[in-house]
């Protein structure tokens, strides 16, 4: 076992405000899966076998065996795994054989979970997309306060915001500033 201690980008931030809670969660692992050219059939088969589902459609995140799968760009998916496993990319690579290329992405992102009965009061001041109209299971990459963000709608009260690790502090500053402005 490694004698190096892992650290979370925001050192495990938690924030509680009346009506809102924001928690930096432990992500598990995040692996990107790129479909090899002309290997869609084999890929879909392997995907079904590995995750028990067909791959998600654009703007979609679905629950799969072991976590979630999210469409991230054309021919590319983000797999969010519940359990830590730093070999996840290699293991997935072996399951998909020649049909996909994997890249470990867990450390590139910071993940914040927003829970609230009225999340849109915050989100309409932060995220440019129409999240009220979005379906449950909506996932998209956009910008908030000029910083990249993946926004995921798990339910009408639970959202996840993922943002690049290096700028996570600035992102959190922006988000908490918004929350405080809304509460005021």
């Amino acid at each position: 076992m490694s004698n190096l201690e892992p650290t979370l980008p925001l050192e495990g931030f938690t924030g509680d405000w009346p009506d809102f809670s924001l928690v930096e969660n432990f992500l598990g692992e995040l692996v990107s899966l790129a479909v090899a050219q002309d290997e869609e059939i084999a890929f879909n088969k392997a995907f079904k076998k590995t995750f028990g589902k067909t791959p998600p459609k654009p703007s979609e995140i679905i629950a799969v065996k072991g976590g979630y799968a999210m469409w991230s760009s054309i021919g590319q998916y983000f797999i969010l795994l519940d359990e830590p496993n730093i070999e996840a990319d290699r293991e997935l690579a072996s399951k998909f054989g020649n049909s996909a290329y994997t890249t470990l992405q867990s450390d590139g992102w910071t993940s914040l979970d927003l829970k609230s009965k009225k999340p849109y009061d915050i989100l309409e001041r932060f995220i440019p997309l129409d999240l009220r109209a979005a379906q449950i299971g909506f996932a998209a990459r956009t910008m908030a306060h000029h910083i990249a963000v993946v926004i995921i709608k798990f339910s009408e009260t639970e959202f996840r915001l993922m943002t690049p690790r290096s700028s996570a502090k600035s992102f959190l500053d922006g988000l908490t500033h918004t929350i405080e402005n809304v509460i005021a």
């Binding site: 654009p58 991230s72 760009s73 998209a140 990459r141 956009t142 990249a148």
Partner: peptide, 10 residues
């Protein structure tokens, strides 16, 4: 040509 730089990179 436009690039979806802050989206899906298409």
């Amino acid at each position: 040509l436009w690039y979806h730089e802050h989206g899906d990179r298409s």
